[in-house]
């Protein structure tokens, strides 16, 4: 048998396995981080929608809510300042957009649809609000 055809020895196999495991572990860590960022973005979208609903409900309570399209009525800084901020104060460069459609419902009720978009993602929220002050 030719000496050049003896193949891998045990030590080579061990080293190869170790190196491949570490590469796999590192890749997995990076993927987890990426997925977690997505969760933080979704969380911020929910908070933005709640902020918009609060502003819309305030308008409705004063009787100033009419059917139509509304832009974001909350704090404009919230559209770009959110989530995980690194120590270098470099913020994640993702901007959100909030659009709202108010349509007529039964009596003094109005249907409010809020669409929050960022990057290639979007989330829809819907709520029914009452026009006029809340009776105690």
């Amino acid at each position: 048998m030719n000496h050049n055809e003896r193949g891998f020895i045990l030590l080579s196999a061990i080293f190869l396995t170790l190196i491949l495991s570490f590469v796999a572990a590192m890749t997995l860590q990076t993927l987890t981080q990426s997925k977690n960022s997505d969760a933080a973005l979704r969380l911020h979208a929910i908070n933005l929608a709640n902020e918009q609903f609060a502003m819309i409900e305030s308008l409705a309570a004063q009787g100033d809510l009419t059917a139509g399209q509304y832009n974001f009525l909350g704090d404009a800084d919230d559209l770009k300042s959110y989530g995980l901020i690194k120590k270098s104060a470099e913020k994640i460069p993702v901007e959100f957009e909030v659009k709202t459609k108010v349509s007529g419902g039964e009596g003094n009720l109005r249907k409010v649809e809020v669409l929050v978009t960022w990057k290639n993602f979007e989330m829809n929220f819907e709520k029914t609000v009452r026009i006029g002050d809340v009776e105690e």
Binding site: L43, A54, D75
Partner: peptide, 29 residues
């Protein structure tokens, strides 16, 4: 107070392990 009967709440916390901060903000009617 951005509007009548609305309160805007902004909370930022810092991790003592990583030194990173996390900010959340919303409003409540």
């Amino acid at each position: 107070k951005p509007a009548e009967k609305v309160l805007h709440v902004e909370l930022e916390m810092e991790s003592l392990v990583t030194g990173r901060s996390f900010k959340v903000a919303t409003a409540v009617f």
